[in-house]
Write a protein that binds this DNA or RNA. Sequence first.
DNA 1: GGAATATGAATGAAAG
DNA 2: CTTTCATTCATATTCC
Lengths: 223, 223
Amino acid sequence: MERGSQNDEYDDGVMTVEQMEILRKQIAIYAVICGQLVSLHESLSSKFPLSSGMHPTGGGYFDPMVASPSTYKISHRHRWTPTSMQLQILESIYEEGSGTPKPQRIEEITLELSQHGQVMEKNVYNWFQNRRARSKRKQPQAMTTMTVQTVDATVTTEERSYGDSGGFESYDHLLFPSNDFSNILKYNLSFSHMILLCAFGYCIVFFGIWKFYLGWFMVILFN
Amino acid sequence: MERGSQNDEYDDGVMTVEQMEILRKQIAIYAVICGQLVSLHESLSSKFPLSSGMHPTGGGYFDPMVASPSTYKISHRHRWTPTSMQLQILESIYEEGSGTPKPQRIEEITLELSQHGQVMEKNVYNWFQNRRARSKRKQPQAMTTMTVQTVDATVTTEERSYGDSGGFESYDHLLFPSNDFSNILKYNLSFSHMILLCAFGYCIVFFGIWKFYLGWFMVILFN
DNA sequence: GGAATATGAATGAAAG
DNA sequence: CTTTCATTCATATTCC
């Protein structure tokens, strides 16, 4: 009703400017609070509208603790995580590939990956998108510390003024040079193991053949 | 305060699902009302800016997204983000509309949206483009894959560690089906090739050793 | 157990 | 319009 009176007063021009200012400040404060409430609600319901009920993936902001008495337990993992095997395949495809996420080949890859765990085409698509974007961002890590400092110095207070929460993500690759090598090694470890296994096998093979000829040589020698 | 009690109940698992749902609906209603209040205040303040207490960088009065408690950078947002109210309007227009982004109606929509925050025609145009393109991708939903079901069945209720992502509840995988089984065989073939390669190597190894002993045996025999 | 990091996912914007 | 890129958000994981 305050709003109504405000409008009336405002339309009639009876309310003084000071009153108007005070009222508006009050509404401003309310607006801030309500905006936060809206944000809170949005984040909690996480874009699952009420009308459609709970999202099939479970969650919402309900924890499995609450949902546990239900018939089947819904895993509260909302996000796909590739299996190590899937990751290997993806990495190999990524490296071999022309660097372009295939348009329709995604389907094939998905099918191939589905042998080693649940996966959607969307997951594969996202993976390639992210993989490429993030490997591209890690290229300028070759810059020396001097350069990093220089670039960082060019970031004036204008940028810092609103970047107190950690700075722009755009500069993270400069401030936090990555250790991509370790990740690659980690991902390809078992694959390298296979290669080593084969190599080891062939070494033994040749050693055996050598021993074979040694045996024949000794046969001839002792004859 | 209500939130506090909610959290307590929620943490203890005392609140029932029904209560939770009721509370959620209440908050939703409050959110809608508050969103309208915010919009009203924005439109008011855009005409009569506050002499004090206004955000220095805000274009209009203030952006509810920016005002979220999460310590986020305040403006200088490089890319437009529709406010909740704008999104609501856009969604309604999208659903009602013939699905075609109107050539000149964009201007009207832009004008309508500008009541709830800064927006350009380009933004509206892009939004409709993206909205349509992405909703189209979810049309070809059809068959499910047998592999997914199989894999899903093998997953137990045990806590899933890193890399074991199979079996999480999601119906979205139905949206991206894959129907080509030849690729599975193709991959299994190459993997089997490696195994066979190793096995073959070891066979040769043992064969070599056997030949080695054969040689020695012949040496002894001929002596 | 909390901050730092890694990464899957969403989406605005632009290229083709 | 379709595809791709860039940025950002949310969550899982790791390390101290």
